[in-house]
Design a protein around this nucleic acid. Structure first.
Lengths: 217, 217
DNA sequence: TCAGTGATCGAACGTTCGTTCGATGAATAG
DNA sequence: CTATTCATCGAACGAACGTTCGATCACTGA
């Protein structure tokens, strides 16, 4: 049972003893790496770039991550894990279907507005992970997709069908496109707070382009 | 006036005399490169990969493209140019606002369904271009954005306002998200023809999640 | 106090990368 | 027919990459 080759060691990487402050430094490395990856892409970001940005030596970086892919895996895994916790808590709160949908949309947007670099690194570097690491992150992603799809299907199908309709599942995928594409162009200074962006998106999805007119100038 | 350093030589690369079949081979190289870039990403795709996939030598590749970035530029420029021609022709055809909107949505989806690799290379490798090459492609992208936004604004604002409303511009960006995200998960065998996907998307955008109910099972 | 180990480092290894060079067929214009 | 240009190639260059190694410090538990 070797620690480096044990197949299920992906999650419990930090189980061995560490000195105080090590976890914080690891988080700092991941945050800096996310910024670099968001700016230049994962392949174009070298371990030397990361080591320079975070202020430790190249060899020292390998004390925290056994490989470059492991670094990206940790980044994606922690981000999705945190998003899922946040959104599942939001989905569990009481309220009408519309209210739950609205809270999830705004929850997604505000979460990634606070983690813009992580969003880029998670969205555009999907296939930079391989094998078990890819599957583990993909499982999280699927779980999040199912959460959102169930809420969309409640809205579209009226909560009367046992299984989601094909159109509802497609609509959920369309909505994911809106949610994630926002970060291709959004900036708070040009577009105002993300919460209002979420309100506009909810209005579009609930009522269509002609809308209720309630949000007019 | 050196051909390699002249600033405006980006478009008219093929102005010098070529032998018969050269243009076809150039297109073939770009198509193969698009497949590789879509599969592995631009940075991870080496010139050696491209040369092997297309069956010419590494040095021979540099007869067609002066650099790796020029190859990506040609790929993106030609793709957007072709998309713009197609969609501007569609937008010019007669019909109601709803019909024009529907034709453009389906036009976008079917164009990239036929050019899936090019879509990935154009969407996820934006910032792999630099300087003038980036600006040239970005100008095409903006032109396409304005075309779509004007049609969305006609629908949302009822064609009565001289300038597009903020909400209409945001809605157009949301719709771009749907349109482009489709290719993250779409496959014809699992989801059926892209035309129907477009119909469902148009219904969602026009009437919202509760919709008209006309497309029910 | 002192062994053990967590944390960090400079230097190097082997590989792959984008690009260039000089040479050689193959087509074409005069 | 011949000079020119297009098209193609093998080989190489220098740089950058991910990763490893062995050696130090600096804590920490007994």
């Amino acid at each position: 049972m070797n620690a480096t080759t044990r197949p299920n060691a992906l999650i419990a990487v930090r189980e061995r003893r560490t000195r105080a402050g090590t976890q914080e430094k690891l988080d700092h490395v991941l945050a800096s790496a996310a910024d670099l990856i968001a700016e230049k892409g994962f392949e174009a970001t070298s371990m030397r770039d990361v080591s320079a940005a975070v202020g430790i030596s190249l060899a020292g970086l390998y004390h925290y991550f056994e490989s470059k892919e492991e670094l990206l895996y940790q980044l994606q895994y922690r981000t999705f894990r945190s998003l899922l916790e946040t959104q599942e808590a939001i989905a569990a709160q009481p309220g009408t279907r519309e209210e739950r949908f609205r809270r999830l949309i705004i929850g997604h947007l505000t979460f990634f507005a606070d983690h813009a670099s992580e969003h880029q690194a998670c969205t555009f570097e999907l296939k930079s992970l391989t094998g078990e690491r890819y599957e583990t992150v993909e499982a999280l992603r699927r779980r999040y997709y199912r959460l959102m799809t169930s809420v969309v299907a409640e809205l579209r199908d009226g909560g009367v069908t046992a299984t989601e309709s094909k159109e509802a599942r497609h609509a959920a995928l369309f909505i994911f496109g809106m949610l994630n594409w926002v970060f291709m162009w959004y900036s708070a200074s040009r577009y105002g707070p993300m919460e209002q962006m979420g309100e506009e998106m909810v209005d579009l999805v609930l009522h269509g382009l002609r809308g209720t007119g309630a949000e007019g100038t």
